[in-house]
């Protein structure tokens, strides 16, 4: 059998498994469609949005109409356009935070889990300490130190995520490290880095993928909170959390303004969570019933 046909077979098999998964879990399928729609909307924000998100007008706090689908805000900006342009901000924020978390957490977790001994003890203690601080408070403190802004605040959130991820990958590494195929690979003369990249990481990563999906929702909520508090996205740029902050200031005049951004956050977070839970039960059949 040639290498090429082998690859084709494998890809085919993978695709059919993917289809079977989505067919079996409607919630995951809907979530995936929603997130893909959100992603394309974010890429095409300039085309889809009828107005510039920054363009002000004299039409202040207008109710929804044909011209302004979701009305206008306190500076006369089109709420729908701001909502659409807030999408890429939120996705960027979520992925940035989770990437930072993985980039810091993964190496430390693998190191502690693989080496064990005093390094493991030290890393675990540091993880315990950081985890005993309420995460959003720590994120705010780190944002304050790094400087206010979307990127800095999401790096802060990522730093706060890293100990949890490190703890997860540490346990996984310890489990996989004891597997016989790792022993076997050692007798073939694999060096430690190769052992980690070829055998340990691929077999330890599954729960991390699930956790990362769930953390995307957490990051989204954190971004919303931080932007609501004025530590994230800076005006005049739109973000869902910051739109909520403005809507709240004018709640007595235009209460309907707080619904659109809130639902946008809720649905996106729901989609990430549903996808994560579905992945979890897909990867771990023993949990399917109880979770």
């Amino acid at each position: 059998m040639s290498v090429i046909s082998e690859g084709v077979v494998r890809r085919k098999r993978r695709r059919s498994r993917f289809v079977a998964w989505l067919a079996g879990d409607k919630r995951a399928a809907v979530s995936l469609v929603f997130l893909l729609a959100l992603a394309s909307l974010s890429v095409l924000a300039n085309v889809v949005a009828p107005y510039s998100p920054l363009e002000q007008s004299m039409d202040i706090l207008a109710p929804p109409s044909a011209a302004h689908l979701l009305g206008t805000d306190d500076l006369g900006r089109d709420v729908f356009s701001r909502l659409v342009h807030g999408g890429p901000m939120s996705l960027y924020a979520s992925f940035l935070a989770v990437s930072v978390g993985v980039l810091i957490g993964l190496p430390f977790g693998v190191l502690a889990g693989y080496l064990g001994g005093w390094i493991d003890t030290a890393v675990s203690r540091v993880i315990d300490t950081i985890l005993s601080c309420p995460s959003i408070v720590l994120a705010i403190a780190v944002t304050g130190a790094l400087g206010i802004g979307l990127t800095n605040s999401m790096i802060a959130v990522g730093i706060v995520f890293s100990p949890g991820l490190a703890r997860l990958i540490r346990v996984q590494t310890m489990i996989v490290k004891g597997e016989l195929y790792v022993d076997a690979a050692r007798t073939f003369g694999l060096s430690t880095p190769r052992l980690v990249f070829r055998h340990i990481l691929p077999n330890a990563i599954q729960p991390v993928i699930v956790q990362v999906t769930l953390l995307l929702a957490t990051a989204l909520l954190a971004e919303a909170s931080l932007s609501f508090l004025g530590l994230g996205v800076q005006p005049p740029h739109p973000s869902w959390g910051q739109m909520l902050a403005r809507a709240y200031a004018y709640m007595e005049i235009a209460p309907e303004q707080m619904y659109a951004p809130g639902f946008a956050i809720l649905f996106t977070a729901l989609a990430f969570n549903a996808l994560g839970e579905s992945l979890r039960s897909l990867l771990d059949p023993t949990r399917r019933r109880s979770d």
Binding site: A217, F228, G241, L244, M251, E252, P255, N273, A274
Partner: peptide, 22 residues
């Protein structure tokens, strides 16, 4: 429960203020 995990709690607060307080 899924809803409770995904909903931003400050938004819940805003809705509560709008309805029960205002």
């Amino acid at each position: 429960a899924s809803l409770g995990v995904a909903v931003p709690n400050f938004w819940v607060g805003m809705i509560l203020v709008g309805f029960f307080a205002l």
